[in-house]
Amino acid sequence: ELTQEQMGLLQYVMDSHLKHRLPQSLATRLILQDDMGSDDNFVFLTEMATRHVQILVEFTKKLPGFQTLDHEDQIALLKGSAVEAMFLRSAELFNRKLLERHTDILEERIRKSGISHDYINPMFNFYKSVGELKMVEEEYALLTAVVILTPDRQYLKDKESVEKLQETFLHILEKICKRHHPDNPQHFARLLGRLTELRTFSHHHADMLMSWRMN
């Protein structure tokens, strides 16, 4: 059972998660738009990524405790986590029921975007492995919070405060995992395992953009 305080925090995070997500209209535009030239595609996906970051910042600002952190530490956390959080949210979008019938088109469009398949294949494998976990929305929201509040980001000064904040959300996430997946005691550990996978995307992201530009 969640404590009264944990229930309040979860409600707060969920409200923010549901409010600050990539608008369905934008996602549909990406998927259903007629064939675009590769330049248009580049500009469009860049705009989409920018919007992703803006929405992520709005979500993060409302995470209980975040605003009490030093301003430069806030930037260090967001800068360190934006790519990982973006891939996590993309995985949620990819696996969301509403998009199920469009995922083949989406996959084809991304595969044709000019990004090297060396980068694309692990991305889709990640989306699919996340899909197999059958995560509920609370888990996506809390895992995003855990990703953002990672205490070992570069340039972060007050690691201790961030660690405390992250632990708060990890405890709630563990309870939510047990509640929604009572037959799978490994579920919480598996979610955390996906975070390791996310880190590799973050490392490869700059290379991926460079290869895309070159193409």
């Binding site: 500009v43 860049t46 705009e47 970051v53 803006q54 929405i55 709005e58 600002k61 806030q74 800068k79």
Partner: peptide, 21 residues
């Protein structure tokens, strides 16, 4: 254009402003 902004610029602007609208 957004494509010319770096990640840190986007984050700094978003932290100061409000993109809810």
């Amino acid at each position: 254009p957004a494509s010319n902004l770096g990640l840190e610029d986007i984050i700094r602007k978003a932290l100061m402003g409000n993109f809810d609208d």
